[in-house]
Amino acid sequence: MSYEFTIIVPVYNEEENLERVEKELSDYIAKSTKKTKVLFVNDGSKDNSQKLIELICQRSPDFSYLLFEENRGLSAAIKAGFDFADTELVGYIDSDLQTAPDDFNLLLEEIEEFDLVTGVRADRKDSFVKNMSSTIANSIRRAFTHDGMDDTGCPLKVIKTDYAKRIPMFKGLHRFLPAMILLQNGKIKQVPVRHFPRMAGTAKFGLWNRLLGPLMDCFAYLWMKKKYINYSVAKRG
């Protein structure tokens, strides 16, 4: 049976988490409702992440990786995953595992009727400052995009790959994936998922790139929306 679903795992200096990532994703693959494989995208890590990733991939054919020459950021890592995905469906999860791989099945239940299904982190286990900055950023983003999504920063998403590959990604646009699917006249849905505290490693985002950065990205999105080319062919001879 050929693979149906690729899970992208962006990695940047996450050596402390990768053993748990391997275990939890291996456990999920065994119970996934789709034939699933994992694609690590190492975003130029400076620690031992790459060595650990290669060992994981040697142990299982369900795991593979891309290694960037240098750090390019989360949006670039996700874009690379989209570019190299060869399955009908693609998703992603952060390597800190603050969301559960098992909850991909909740999203997969809905994906047949939609083109993107995103998680909404219920009962978030983050700090007050992190939660508040995310709430404000999401409110600002919704005012710009009108996508109706409550938590586009949730690192648990499933997308039909043909839609994902048409997203014109730029730095910061990973926060606008639902809106970019809407630009393609696609359908989107959000589903509550579990959320957990970070168990190891350090967060890669602070107040600037959780609040002020996304505000600037909203203007980039508006420019993209104005310039975006979308068409449908009525007839071909």
Score class of each variant (00 low, 15 high):
T118I: 15
N105K: 06
C154E: 13
F219Q: 06
E88G: 11
R175K: 13
V191T: 07
F68Y: 13
R175Y: 05
Y228G: 07
S139H: 09
W208F: 15
I53D: 02
V120K: 07
G201K: 05
I188C: 11
G213N: 13
Q190V: 01
L116T: 04
L182S: 01
D123L: 12
K171I: 13
L66F: 05
K204A: 11
L52F: 01
K226W: 01
A143K: 14
K235W: 09
A143F: 15
I111E: 06
F144P: 00
L156R: 00
Y3T: 03
A77K: 08
I78C: 07
K31S: 11
R72E: 10
G186E: 07
D217C: 09
E88Q: 13
S232P: 02
F5V: 01
A80N: 10
Y28M: 08
K51V: 12
R121L: 15
K79G: 02
L107P: 03
T152Y: 07
K79Y: 00
K165P: 11
G44E: 03
I8M: 05
K165Y: 05
N71D: 09
V117P: 02
K37H: 02
Q98Y: 02
E113S: 15
M149N: 10
K34S: 04
S134I: 11
V21W: 08
T118V: 14
M1A: 15
E112Y: 14
I111C: 07
Y12M: 08
K37M: 06
L74W: 08
K130W: 09
T87R: 01
K157C: 07
I29K: 03
E70W: 12
F114R: 10
N105D: 14
D150W: 03
V120R: 03
N42M: 05
L222D: 03
V38Q: 00
E22S: 00
A234V: 14
T99I: 06
D62C: 02
R72Q: 12
F5K: 01
L215E: 02
I229Q: 11
Y12S: 08
L25G: 03
H174S: 05
L173Q: 14
Y221T: 00
I7H: 02
F219D: 00
G206F: 09
K125T: 06
N230S: 12
P61S: 06
K125D: 00
Y3C: 02
G172P: 14
A164V: 10
D162W: 13
R72M: 04
N17L: 08
A220I: 01
E15F: 11
H146L: 11
Y65K: 00
V38A: 11
I29R: 01
N230Y: 13
L89D: 09
C218L: 12
D43C: 04
G172A: 06
K130P: 08
K35D: 00
T202R: 05
E24W: 08
K204N: 03
G81Y: 03
D47G: 04
